[in-house]
């Protein structure tokens, strides 16, 4: 199937470009997620499950 799809394009570097794009986006997102300045923000988000907003009723 790959050969069939590639036979319709003259750009044979397509699979390589796709892999590079995929990996680059993944690495950039990973770097952004682990950026040092966001620790406090993530710590607050991580505690969300503990806050029910409940006023214990009858």
């Amino acid at each position: 199937m790959k050969a069939e799809i590639l036979s319709r394009t003259e750009w044979l570097q397509l699979p390589l470009v796709a892999v590079v794009l995929f990996v680059a986006i993944f690495v950039l997102m990973l770097a952004w997620i682990v950026r040092p300045g966001a620790s406090r923000f993530y710590a607050m988000r991580g505690r969300m499950a503990l806050d029910d907003g409940e006023v214990r009723g009858e």
Binding site: I33, V34, Y42, A43, R45, G46, R47, A49, L50
Partner: peptide, 13 residues
């Protein structure tokens, strides 16, 4: 799991 452990999730990241 955080509710039962009474701890925040280990890593939100």
């Amino acid at each position: 799991m955080p509710k039962a452990a009474e701890r925040p999730v280990y890593s939100y990241r």
